[in-house]
Structures are given as structure tokens and as C-alpha cells.
Design a protein around this nucleic acid. Sequence first.
DNA 1: TCCAATATCGTACGGCGTACGGAGACGACG
DNA 2: CGTCGTCTCCGTACGCCGTACGATATTGGA
Lengths: 266, 266
Amino acid sequence: MLRIMAKRSDKPDDRHYGGRGDPVRSMELLWRDRSAPARGRGPKPGLTVERIVTAAIDLADAEGLPALSMRRVAQRLGVGTMSLYTYVPGKAELIDVMFDTVCGEQDPIPWAEDWRERLELIARSTLGMYRRHPWMLSVMANSRPPLGPNSIANYDRDLRAVDGLGLTDLEMDSVVTMLAVYVQGAANTVVEAASTEPATGVSDQEWWETYGPLLAKVFDAEKYPTAARIGAVAGETYQSAYDPDHGFEFGLTRLLDGVAALIASR
Amino acid sequence: MLRIMAKRSDKPDDRHYGGRGDPVRSMELLWRDRSAPARGRGPKPGLTVERIVTAAIDLADAEGLPALSMRRVAQRLGVGTMSLYTYVPGKAELIDVMFDTVCGEQDPIPWAEDWRERLELIARSTLGMYRRHPWMLSVMANSRPPLGPNSIANYDRDLRAVDGLGLTDLEMDSVVTMLAVYVQGAANTVVEAASTEPATGVSDQEWWETYGPLLAKVFDAEKYPTAARIGAVAGETYQSAYDPDHGFEFGLTRLLDGVAALIASR
DNA sequence: TCCAATATCGTACGGCGTACGGAGACGACG
DNA sequence: CGTCGTCTCCGTACGCCGTACGATATTGGA
């Protein structure tokens, strides 16, 4: 009756860029039994899902999601491309497992007395995760996430941080989600800023020195006096168009102030 | 001395997914003189940059960024693929122009008396833009943005909304950026949620009905009581894992409460 | 009229995900 | 010990991608 992605899409690779895989296959992989080898009749497996996932994560960390290809992963493992398909149904499901694996590698976050500090620690830890694995930003799914053991553990940890503050269940969920969404957006900026210089070989200052004059030629400061004023101040202060780390902390403070107001109103 | 992307990267297409183009070429396109045809000697141009950009935007709207290819755009215009390169240096620069074009199509936002209402209107208008053009989320650049006329106009508009409230220039910039970052993150969720059903042919409810039992088999509710409780409540309330529109407004309220606290402290 | 300048675009290269099916390795059973 | 069923490994092929290159067609100016 109810089929969920029972068929692969007709066109190759038209699932979202860091796509969701077939839920059933993904769940089987995510919650797979890691203990029993349970060898059967054929030849010994030369690989494991773990080794493939690790190699894929290393590759994505080093060269980004666009460089993540089945060929490249197989190359890293010294096997033929198609051998991977013995262990993993396809690229999309592999990415689902990569996602949950990374979710599980965060250090345990110390339990602070203050809810505010707890949320700050979580936010910064998550930011650190995105820093180490920028491709996670392209894979993140907030609706219909691949519900692996580690991402669920994180969800539980986040909820416990706002439990017992007088919020309703729904408000707790909303606060936690809002924080995750904000961190995701801010991390996008932070990560992009960090990755641009190595990728282009041009520092922010150099970029600004070239772009600025280019812009000055065409930009009419009289038409947009506010943008001209603030843009100049921000550019001088940050030596670039924007300082993402400052932005992250600034936004986090405002956001938690807003949460404080909600809690106070209860 | 100072070269900014003077050469194309050696590998094809390793610029970011919705990549930045060569700044000089992009700026020439973005601020191009739209008036003068200034015909010279050769055959009449059969296309315009505008037509190409429009076709590209239509394609990206309809089928997403992964489907945006030079071949497909050319197909839509009834020309050979390589003809596009007469008008546009490459795909990356085309995307830069698409970006700024979309930035310019927002309706003018009415000027509200209350700063808070002004920011709400901007946030919702921006969300609407992301709804109409989900691919903009994959193209958004917060550091080193392609500074076209329209994105600058929007920046100015945003700043004017928080001018004269007693904030410093830097704080104004931070507030505006924070709002943009939040909307970006939240829009990610909203847009993803809206696009998942048509893309997969599975409604949220159907998905939940299949996924839920699948999860129930492996999820240990006693290990994560908080997640189990809240997840169940949220699932029942939203008939899915999450209601993104509610999340957007909830987060926006908290965020503006935080801004209000900042303004009050001045 | 003829040429310089411009527009058009076919071909080619090396990449991608993965369907398909053959080949070889191994354990269980006769 | 042979044989068969099962499993692993993976070469090949298809149709996509961006775009460098260079041939060809079209036009206006001299």
C-alpha cells in the first residue's frame, strides 16, 4: 500500500544534493547490528560499513561534498568502485550514515547549572562540529531527518537542557529547534568565511582591496547613505565585509535573551 | 601582484556548489549598462543576458539547482549550449547574476512605524523570496557576497529599518546580519519541508506513519525519556516531525525580543 | 566588394552514479 | 574430496555535467 521511495527516481542523482536515501535501507544501516560478523558461505568481506563511512567522511572533510564520489571513496580504500555497493545501497544512504556518525563524535558536554550556559555550550559545540565537517551543513535536514541513534541522542541532550524551566513540551521543542536552526545559519557563514581563503588563495583583506575599488566605481553612495556609512564602518572594523565569529556570539546572545524573556513570562 | 581568481581552477566545477564567479567578470555583468545596444560589426546578437538569466531562474525554480545546467538553459532558449558563453563568462558568474536579479524582485516593503514590525515584514518578505526561489539558499554567501545593485539596495533597506534606535553602527550591522542569518536558517527548514512532499510523492503523514514504526522497533524510549515524550507530543501536534512555519514565527519572536532587550539597554 | 569583427555551436575531455552481469572465493553438504 | 549455492569483487556502459577550442556563418564599415 504505502510505498516510501519504493523506486529510485528515474533520473540519476536528482535527489537533493546531499540527499536522503531510501528510509528503510537507511534505517537498516543506521541501526545495524555492529557486533555479529555472522559469516555465511561466500568469501570473507574485505571491507566494513565503518571503514567506508570513515573514508567518506575523511574525503568530505578534506575536499568538500562535491568531491565526495563513490569512485574517490573506493580509491581511498584501494578497491573497485562497485565493491562499495556490496556494503552500502548507494551514495544517498552512505551520506545518511556519515551524518549520524558525525553526530555521534561530539564530546560530551558538561552539565552547567544555568540553562543559559547549557545552551551556549551546546551551540558552540555544534558550531565546532560544523567547523570540522562543513559538508554537514549541506546535508542537514530539519524535516524528515535520518533518525539515527546519535542524532536522537543529541536531540535528547538538547531537550534536557531546557527541561524543568516551566516551558510546555511544545515550547521546549521549539526552543531547541530554533537554536539548531540559528546555529545552522550562523555556521553557514562561519564555515564559508573560513573556507573561502584556502579555497581561493585570496585573503579577506586582499579580496576587500580588490573588490572595494571595483565597487566604488559603480556604487552611488548618495543613493544609499546608510549602507555606505555602515558598510564602511564594518569593513574597517573587521578588515572584511563581516566577522562571522563575532556575528555568531552576538546573535546567540540576542536569541538567548529572547528565550529568557519567554521563560520569565511563565 | 594581486590576483583574484585570475585563473579558473584546474579541476572542473570545484568552485562551491552554487559558486562565486570571477569577481571582475561578475561585477561587469552585475553593473552592466542595460541601455545601449551599441551594435558593432558582426551578426546581430540573438540573445541577451536578461533572457539567459530569466531562463536560468525559471529552470532553477522549477527543477532546483542540481538541474541547472548550461545545456538545459540553452535548450530552453532554443540555442546551442556554447552560444551562452558569448553573453556570460560561465556558470558561476551566471549564478551571481541570477542571485542579484532575484534580490531585486521583492516588492517594496511598506514602512511601519514600529521597528519591530519593520523587521518582521522584512523577515517574512525574505522568507517569501526563499519560498519562490529555494535555490537561493544554496547560493547565499554572507562573506564576500556578489555585490550587485539589488543586494546592496536590500542591505540599505534593512539598515534603515534599525536606524535611529540608539544602536551603534556596528550593532546595526550585527542586528541586520543576525536577522538575515536566522531567516536563512529557518527558510532552509521551511523550504525543505515544502519541497520534500512533491519531490518524493510522500506526504508528511505517510512518512511519519512508515518511519514511526520503523523507529519504534529500534528506539529505546527508556534511554531517552525526554526525547520520547517531546517527540511524541510534537509528532502528534504537527502530524509530522516538525511544523516549520510555526518554528519560523516562534524563533522570529524570540529573536526580536532579544533585539528589544538590546535596544532597551541603550 | 571585401574584410574585420562578432555570433553560433559541434566536438571532445574527464568527471559523475549506478545497473548489469561475469568471475572467482568460500563454506556446507554429499 | 567434489560440487553447488552463495557471496564478494568489479569491468563495462549509459547518459549526464562544464567548458576549451576552433570552424563556420553573418553582418556593417570602408
